[in-house]
Design a binder for these strands. Structure first.
Lengths: 232, 232
DNA sequence: CATCTTTGACTGAATGTTCAGTCTAGAAAC
DNA sequence: GTTTCTAGACTGAACATTCAGTCAAAGATG
């Protein structure tokens, strides 16, 4: 599966190839785990020879490392875009929680929660990846932090220390993500989402009414612009 | 290096050998990561032949899997023991947080936060380990949950849903553990500990005064046996 | 416009290394 | 004198990486 899509569509050359490989690598990592990902797997997935993979990325390590970077960037970009489309701080923060907890209808290869587990594990030993992860975490904390500040100025939220709150929330999200990634029978996506939102609403002192967010699909029933589709 | 300590101390035969290997395995995993742990590393560490490792554990997989189980059990047992020694629910819950956040003076091989990252990553693909992890998580949640209930009955804590709180706290602890494991410059052990305790105190409605807990040194000055040194 | 030349994408067949696991046989322990 | 341990040498398979080219399109050259 998979290969055809792009392979058929003719994009053989140039940097689309690179990207194709990065994507394939992420898929394989998600399935087999970082450590068990072989160059041959990635190659096979897009129907090319292993040698070609090395042709583009000098080493296996480079391929995998770059694919992680790729994931990281995409994910952050998606976050930014979505934030921009939402009107209130409360809605934005809810979207962040949703991104962390709720699987999306259009399951991208970049999703798959287990990818983040591998990411963390890798960061523990690979300094380059460690730096990446750190920056990434910092970015999310800042996003949350400034969101909170905004919300406070707009009178949506009660006054609490934004930085501390950001650390708390981001850590909580990571922790919940583990449960979700590992399919914990007690802490599924919905429950994680609800608990987290309750926590936030309580901390920031705003009303949060459960329901609304119909599973996947969209982030908010009402709120107009039902368009957002996350192209691919 | 390393070998000497135990090797010299005579415990050569029988099941102490097994345990010695399990410990060594954990050390190596902590250093090199689960995926990069070789049988030869474990053997070398205690100065034996790789073949001997296979003699005791039929396969590499078995060795590693068992070492994870070993870690899991020890950690939980330590938790139980410590809980038993503390008088109030508040103190117990603080100890749990400390165990999750604060490195201890007598750094056991079993510690090393990165071990947990590997544990989770492994659980994502290895059903056996997945079961282990799930049970483990459940145990901690129950511990917290019943702790909260106790505290409530004793009038120490305000009334909140104990199960939900347990999920929240355990997830938060996991999330903070990631930051700590990866040496995040912003979220170090102390800050994680403080933030977490503040959160708890607020949720459960009790007073928590920072100070007290002098960094490492274990939870309680006393503890006698200053001997245990864990060679290395 | 027919021919060479160049260049970039790509492959299949080696090569070499790294390990897990086996096998043989010696030393202890009981 | 079995049975339990243990080491050392060895095997076999799995891979990453290299190498020597193939192939086709794009430019030169005449």
């Amino acid at each position: 599966m998979t290969d055809t899509a792009q392979a058929a569509s003719g994009l053989g050359t140039a940097d689309s190839r690179r990207e194709q490989m990065l994507r394939a690598a992420l898929e394989v990592i998600a399935e087999r785990g970082y450590a068990d990902t072989r160059i041959a797997d990635v190659a096979e997935r897009i129907g090319i020879s292993p040698a070609l993979v090395i042709y583009y990325f000098k080493t296996k390590d480079q391929l995998l490392t770059e694919s992680i970077r790729y994931l990281d960037n995409i994910w952050y970009a998606v976050g930014q875009r979505r934030m921009a489309e939402l009107p209130t701080a409360a809605a934005r923060i809810e979207e962040i929680v949703a991104m962390s907890c709720l699987p999306e209808a259009d399951a991208e290869p970049r999703s798959s929660w287990t990818l983040w587990l591998d990411f963390w594990t890798l960061a523990a030993r690979n300094p380059e990846v460690a730096g990446l992860r750190q920056r990434d975490d910092e970015r999310w904390r800042e996003m949350v932090s400034s969101l909170v500040t905004d919300g406070q100025q707009a009178g949506e939220f009660r006054v609490v220390d934004a930085d501390n709150f950001a650390i708390l929330l981001c850590s909580l999200l990571d922790g919940l993500a583990i449960q979700i990634a590992l399919d914990d029978p007690v802490v599924g996506p919905e429950r994680a989402f609800d608990l987290c939102m309750q926590f936030i609403a309580e901390q920031l002192g705003f009303e949060w009414k459960d329901s609304q967010r119909a599973r996947n699909g969209g982030y908010q029933a009402g709120q107009s612009n039902g368009a957002r589709q996350e192209g691919r």
